[in-house]
Write a protein that binds this DNA or RNA. Structure first.
Lengths: 232, 232
DNA sequence: TTGACGTCTTGATAATTATCAAGGATCGAG
DNA sequence: CTCGATCCTTGATAATTATCAAGACGTCAA
């Protein structure tokens, strides 16, 4: 790994508080690579050889079964994926592919587990990250089990709106077909759900969404911090 | 806590390898209590004061939003719940209530975090438990997103069948309405799904289920170890 | 510019799932 | 035993969601 990249990695929450020597050891074993878009990084069922950290770009996590496929989540900088598989030395439960040109840090699983044993601060950071992943998944699951498709879309729009500064409009961060899959519906249904939301002040133009009647949208969506807030 | 209960707790995977003195300290702060059935233990949104360990009995985890409610999971001995909330010092994302008379160990959150810092072996065990919880939730989510209701039921029956020794029949471990909610459907639909499975050799009598044509049931269910195997 | 491709949308239809209402079975309390 | 309560099932119907087919729109390269 190039030494010019090290400070960037070091500043990540996950590595910030570990000791200098443990960090160096871990990085000596790691690779920082840039991948083109639409590249398959891992396939579910394969053994977890590396922990992945997205430094730049964006990675889609998806799952397949039968003939079906579904987007399970998106990982943006700075996030990890498949941490649980690495820690358990198990197989991946999800596949991953880049959806932009992406700079990604690969750390061999064995070294992650070593560092976890050696470095108390790293262990704490790992646990916080893993707990965040878990709670995120619980929220996704609640979203899907407790809401209709239109409600899921309405709440997702409110969330993006909030995350982008509550300026009355928002940009959809992904293709519509990706958002549809994330929300557990077909692209056709996403289109129709947008139409259903039109009377609630939702106007779509490509990736731009205008929210002209936040109040009525919120009444419909009934947002719930225990589902929609990513931070807590 | 009574000293007669200590060996039982000590033998749990979570506590087995921690040091004697750290274990003693942790247990001095803990409570082992027996709760009647149908008792609300925690409510989502409340701060995480305790880590819960189910020693005997059974606990249902559920989530509410809007007017809806859904069973998120069942915890049997020896399992923990709301570990992530405790480690993050955050609020609970799920509510919990006993569904049998249950013996439960309550450990104050602060002490769990203390022990995590102090005891390397405990930290490792915590991480493995948390990773298991995460992977279980990923599997539940895949189940719901990638399968129809009938497929979910078929695979769940095959799983219970396997867990109970593959003897050609199985006992449903919970009320049918609980199983329906676990599988993300209404009780009415569960009834109909059982009828749909009749031609595949599934015969239901109360909580007893006979599987007389495993092969054709498996062809329908298309079980997937990355969804259905709880261990891996 | 043109054509090919992919994405998104719309309409028609089908499949899946939920809701409402009612009836039967079971179980415990009195 | 009998009553009441709860759970489960079934039927009828409605709502939701998916599928299939076609067309609109934009992008990009030749």
């Amino acid at each position: 790994m190039r030494t010019t990249d090290l400070p960037q990695v070091r500043s990540l929450e996950l590595f910030r508080s570990m000791s200098e020597s443990n960090f160096d050891t871990l990085m000596q074993a790691a690779y920082l690579q840039t991948f083109p878009t639409q590249l398959d990084l891992i396939t579910e069922g394969d053994p977890a050889d590396f922990l992945y950290v997205v430094i730049e770009g964006c990675v889609e996590l998806c799952a397949r079964s039968n003939g079906r496929e579904s987007t399970m989540g998106m990982v943006r900088p700075v996030g990890t994926f498949i941490l649980a598989a690495v820690l358990k030395d198990a197989v991946y439960l999800m596949s991953a592919r880049t959806c932009q040109k992406s700079k990604i840090l690969l750390i061999p699983s064995e070294n992650v587990r070593d560092a976890f044993e050696r470095d108390e601060a790293f262990a704490r950071a790992i646990v916080v990250e893993l707990a965040n992943c878990y709670r995120g998944m619980v929220k996704e699951h609640k979203d899907l089990k407790l809401r209709t498709a239109v409600e899921r879309l309405a709440n997702r729009l409110l969330r993006y709106h909030r995350e982008q500064g509550s300026a009355g409009s928002l940009d959809l961060p992904y293709d519509k077909r990706t958002i549809a899959s994330l929300l557990g519906m077909t692209p056709e249904n996403l289109s129709r759900a947008f139409n259903t939301l039109k009377p609630y002040g939702v106007d779509v133009d490509g990736a731009k969404v205008h929210l002209s009647d936040l109040k009525s949208l919120q009444i419909l969506a009934k947002p719930n911090p225990l589902i929609d807030n990513r931070e807590s």
